[in-house]
Design a protein around this nucleic acid. Structure first.
Lengths: 360, 360
DNA sequence: CTGAAAGCGCTTACAG
DNA sequence: CTGAAAGCGCTTACAG
């Protein structure tokens, strides 16, 4: 590699033309004779010219940096969203300046001030899912902004979120397709947005299939494995016949699994189980033994980033003109669900797995 | 916020001095009368002047962007390292331009070319742990570089890695302190660097305590839960008395747990178990029920980034002058282990947990 | 079709 | 102690 960076002026001198001519030709500006164009292009290639992005940013005002404002960066579910977003940004040669608000309003404000001063070209706000609220970015932060993994459903903002209604639907469809008819829903907190949405999709799909919801409603608890165990005892103790359970998390599903098995229930022969999170996904490890729904959080983040990249690119897309989710996600079961300029993605797929061979 | 950004020239005009005087005063350059200094500072504050970083980067040549070259960004163990690094970078107002090599040599080369062209101020290379090798960045990539979570032990590069010897020591000490005397090691692959290092620390600590290693060596397998189950059957079938097991991963530990329990063994009463990974760390979920060693991967990444930040800052530290690990990590059990300019961190802590209340 | 020139907003010798 | 001036490497009207 050349010790000293070659500049536009070097190319111009070598090609025997002016700097402005080289500049125009290199950025594809039409008006140039074929001969000049060829010579300049050839010279630039020969000298391995790479325009200095620092100079370009300075003159164009585009920093090639995007702000990433995370509410809680190191959390298990934020990380994949951030990594997904950043992978997309890298593909577009955009750097990410990340600040972690750590649920601190002052840190959030300070981060926005810094991002503004830094002249970021855009902003991605990454929340902590649909169940945790906090104020949106002030309107006077006048930079293209996309929210993801937040609780926002405001049609005035672009927001990519997990489609929890669809998760409920997928879970129901899966269990129905297995031929189950006595299906229960072991949910997390009763008032959580995610619980409400998932149950809406779940209950509607069951109703459409003419199936009852066992216990005529979800069993409400929390996200933990211990709640799964408790729910199993409730189900076993109720004497109610159940042949399938939709669990709100894989942890709950594991608790259900252990306690039901302890109670003599065969999984999935007697009771089929489906969870959410696809939590054990270390390659070559985990050897998943329960069916689960993956929220595809990296894809969520990358979809949000791709959208922002289009906005930065001067795209004027808005409202219903947004690309549908099925255009954004490859190789996944998707369902576009467009509400005004808010885009919800299903961002989920079923991971079917074998039943546990461990008869310990 | 002002519609139009205020420039150095605006401050100069308002304060009645020259642009160069403002520039010098604002960056703390000494020679200035107290009166001028006060007036300029006050004016800058009043106008809320923020220097245009695009202009600054252009003239100084410092891009305020750091390259992040990840070997496999979305993998479970890479993500926390990347997020940790990026949090540190953000604290230093440095953006991260991340490329994901996806184990593709050509992608790696291309990423380096782009980072070079982008004039990044530094580079962080994030690997896939000590067990996977690939070539280092070519020497002609003349930018401060720090490696982390890679297999490098080359004293010519700065490399932050998990200290697996220390992990073995911690596991042994923990089990010894519990009063256990018949201690086994259920390891992953025999030839893995991590296995070898952990066993070195483990066996040495046992020997120092005058304790034998049951089976006179590790039981070798893989990282999976199923291997844990198989190992449990081996242990139970051997008739050998065992009262504690060091498992190479939490997945293995879970397999051991399930199968030992199935065999009538009480955990931890009869056999104490310790794993590695602290895998179930979703806040409020997981309700961890096994003792584990956390590798503190976010701290690993942030330590690497902090080191790079110092290098970029023009620090001339090198060789033994590097700060020790205990200076870098707060609130953790650390052990500085300095080998030339290579710095290894222990980056681990014990998470003691209650035994499982789930008697399912 | 091509080039001279201004300008982006700073920093940094250099002169006074 | 302070300021005039050059310069960083591009882009972009504008003129020819």
């Amino acid at each position: 590699m050349p010790r000293k960076a070659v500049r536009l002026a070097d190319v111009a001198a070598a090609a025997g033309v002016s700097v402005s001519t080289v500049s125009k030709i290199l950025k594809g500006d039409g008006r140039a004779s074929a001969a000049t164009r060829a010579r300049v292009l050839e010279t630039a290639r020969r000298l391995d010219f790479r325009p200095n992005p620092l100079a370009q940013s300075f003159v164009t005002g585009r920093s090639l940096v995007v702000g990433v404002l995370a509410e809680n960066a190191p959390s298990t579910f934020s990380m994949p969203v951030i990594i997904g977003a950043q992978s997309s940004l890298g593909r577009a040669d955009l750097a990410a300046l990340m600040y972690d608000a750590r649920n601190d309003p002052k840190a959030r404000t300070e981060a926005l001030r810094k991002l503004q001063a830094r002249r970021v070209d855009g902003l991605i706000v990454i929340g902590e899912g649909p169940d945790i609220d906090y104020p949106p970015v002030p309107a006077d932060f006048d930079v293209p902004t996309v929210y993801t993994y937040t609780s926002y459903r405001d049609p005035r903002v672009v927001s990519y979120t997990v489609d929890n209604v669809a998760i409920g639907q997928m879970a129901a469809r899966h269990l129905i397709e297995l031929g189950r008819t006595r299906i229960a829903h072991v949910a997390a907190g009763r008032s959580l947005r995610s619980t409400i949405d998932r149950h809406e999709g779940f209950a509607t799909t069951l109703a459409d299939a003419g199936l009852p919801l066992v216990f005529s409603g979800p069993l409400y608890g929390d996200w933990k494995r211990t709640w799964g165990s408790e729910a199993a005892r409730i189900i076993l103790g109720s004497g109610t016949q159940v042949d399938a359970i939709f669990a709100a998390s894989d942890d709950i599903a594991v608790g259900l699994y252990a306690t039901l098995r302890g109670g003599g229930v065969r999984i999935p022969d007697d009771i089929a189980l489906i969870g959410v999170d696809n939590y054990a996904k270390v390659p070559g490890r985990g050897d998943r033994f329960l069916t689960t729904i993956d929220r595809r959080l990296p894809q969520l983040g990358s979809s949000a980033a791709d959208h922002l990249i289009r906005l930065i690119g001067g795209s004027t897309e808005s409202g219903g003109a947004f690309p549908t989710a099925s255009e954004l996600i490859v190789g996944a079961t998707t369902r576009p669900d467009l509400v005004g300029p808010v885009e919800q993605e299903i961002d989920t797929y079923l991971t079917d797995a074998v039943s546990d061979a461990d008869r310990g």
